[in-house]
C-alpha cells in the first residue's frame, strides 16, 4: 500500500447551507495536487452530489452528521469518502439507475450518474437503518517536469 502524501477529515451538520462549504473545502484541499480547472470542477460536482444526497435522503426529516475524508497521493490519485449515519439504501443497484429517485418533484435522479461519470471510480456501500458510504476516486493528470528531488 502506498501511503497518502496528505489527508484530512471533516464533519458537519446536514444543513443544506453546508453543500457549498463541503465542495469548496474539499477542492481547496485537493488544490495541493495542482489540478486543472476541469478536474476541480469534476470533483466539486461529485462531492456536491454525494453531500446533497446525505442531506435530502439519508437525513430526510432529521439533522445528522456528515463525515468526509480525503486522501491525496503523490501519483495524483484522490480518494474521497463521504459517510452518513442516515436511513441507508435498500437497493443500491436500483438507486444508481439513471432517473431513479425517491426525492419527489424537483429531483432529476442523476446524482449517482454524475458522480460516476465525473470521477474514475465510485463505490457505494449501505445498510438500512445504519447509513451509507460513498467512495469516489480520481486520478489527476500529473504535469511532467516536476521531479521530486529537483
Amino acid at each position: 500500500m502506498i501511503k497518502p502524501m496528505n489527508e484530512m477529515s471533516l464533519s458537519f451538520l446536514s444543513c443544506s447551507a453546508n453543500e457549498g462549504f463541503a465542495r469548496a473545502t474539499v477542492s481547496a484541499f485537493v488544490a495541493q495536487l495542482d489540478p486543472t480547472v476541469g478536474e476541480i470542477s469534476d470533483i466539486k460536482t461529485a462531492v456536491s452530489e454525494a453531500v446533497t444526497n446525505c442531506i435530502i435522503h439519508a437525513y430526510r426529516d432529521v439533522i445528522g452528521m456528515i463525515y468526509i475524508s480525503v486522501k491525496i497521493f503523490e501519483n495524483g490519485k484522490v480518494v474521497i469518502r463521504i459517510r452518513d449515519k442516515g436511513c441507508g439504501i435498500e437497493d443500491i443497484e436500483k438507486a444508481k439507475e439513471p432517473l431513479y429517485s425517491t426525492g419527489g418533484e424537483e429531483r432529476a435522479g442523476l446524482g449517482f450518474m454524475v458522480m460516476e461519470s465525473f470521477m474514475d471510480q465510485m463505490k457505494v456501500t449501505s445498510k438500512v437503518g445504519k447509513g451509507t458510504v460513498v467512495v469516489l476516486q480520481k486520478e489527476l493528470e500529473r504535469k511532467q517536469a516536476k521531479s521530486a528531488n529537483g
Binding site: 465542495r23 456536491s48 452530489e49 446533497t52 418533484e105 424537483e106 429531483r107 432529476a108 442523476l110 454524475v114
Partner: peptide, 13 residues
Amino acid sequence: GFMDSAGIGLIIG
C-alpha cells in the same frame, strides 16, 4: 459558476 444535478431539476421543473 457552478451547477450540479439540482440545475437539471430546476430546468425540468
